[in-house]
Write a protein that binds this DNA or RNA. Structure first.
Lengths: 216, 216
DNA sequence: TAGATTGTTAATCGATTAACAATC
DNA sequence: TAGATTGTTAATCGATTAACAATC
């Protein structure tokens, strides 16, 4: 029996499909073909079918996909049928921002503990969430069986924090620190370098502004 | 003369290289080979050389790359030799968070105007930044010659805001709204769907927890 | 049954990695 | 000069897209 390798990009697209399907469901659509989905949301129909086929047979030949069952399947695959507890590390500007941001909680990801090393912050509660010392990460995360961590600390301390999270049993991390972190293969680290994203934008502007090479 | 297509991923990696080079420079290193760089930061040396070679010849055979000149070249390529003004649209939780977050300003991206449609917010100043009505995007952005926009509005209104930004002359957009937006090819849109990122993480946890197939 | 659309295999495309001649 | 490392071409790998038999 071969373990079929599912491309990372396929998983990323799954949440795009889910969003599209949610939208269609909201409009009361009963079923959709991969072609319709692709045309409407700017996707490729073959890719939609191939991506879905990694996980099972969700469609009906000659008809397409029933919306509601497909949504349920996507939620099941993505592990969204349950709520996840999340540990946030770093209560600086970005960390505070992420707590205030409701987007995560709405999607079933609940920040249930925050870690910071500033004694002035430790022991307080932010939005009802307890702030604990960074030194207690391993034990607290382990005790609460938390599997998802968010890193919102400066780059310099990020690796040590990641190590602690991993030691405590965390297996998926959203990292906002601009640093090349290392973790065991079993741990999934998603990097989000906001400044780097802006830098690629500035590259594109610089390219777009200067080159006025020749008017044919 | 052929226009060499530079892969998007190469541009993304450029800012990673810049970060590495900055770190080495901080340590007082004078030069580095692609191999050293790759070993230390978990990159591939051939890829480093190939990526850089898209933009010119920055190395010296037998020696490697001189750190400081390479940093300057990377900054020049990425358009970081100047400060950029940025227009932020949406002063909700995420928008406020992005203003409080110092990361952008530090890297030369200055949020110089914020747009919101809430009359209760318009006219005020946040952190010294004027809050203006969303209806004025086109004229304000055009007048100030702003080229970069950040979208922190709900998905429903995102396309209209993007259209306004583009009409005003913006050519690069960082989009936090979970929506499939369309823009002219000349406009670069970078999507950052934070919830989608968490969803791929929850997928990985779901995979990691269940499958305990057989112990050989 | 005829028409439509899936699931899947084959073809294409692009990106990564390896190899090496050029050259410091 | 000998050793090292670049810039670049060729080989490999993986992902996307096209094509089509299976089948609703």
């Amino acid at each position: 029996m071969r373990a079929i390798k599912i491309p990372e990009k396929t998983v990323t697209r799954l949440s795009i499909y889910l969003r599209c399907v949610e939208e269609l469901e909201g409009e009361g659509t009963a079923s959709v073909s991969s072609k319709q989905l692709a045309d409407r949301f700017g996707l490729n129909s073959a890719q939609v079918r191939k991506d879905l086929a990694y996980f099972g047979q969700f469609g009906i030949r000659g008809l397409g996909y029933y919306i509601t069952p497909l949504r349920h399947s996507l939620e099941e695959i993505l592990g969204l049928k349950r709520a996840w507890e999340v540990a946030l590390v770093g209560l600086g500007n970005l960390g505070s921002a992420l707590i205030a941001y409701r987007g995560f909680q709405e999607k079933g990801f609940k920040i249930s503990v925050v870690f910071d090393r500033d004694p002035g912050k430790v022991g307080r509660r932010i939005d009802g969430i307890p702030v604990m010392d960074t030194g207690t990460i391993v034990s607290v995360v382990r005790k609460r069986k938390i599997k998802i961590g968010i890193l919102a600390v400066p780059a310099a301390g990020a690796q040590a924090v990641l190590d602690a999270l991993v030691k405590g049993g965390v297996i998926a991390v959203l990292n906002f620190a601009p640093a090349q972190l290392t973790a065991p293969d079993s741990v999934k680290v998603q990097n989000v370098d906001l400044s780097a994203l802006l830098k690629t934008l500035s590259y594109h502007i610089a390219r777009a502004e200067q080159p006025k090479p020749r008017t044919p």
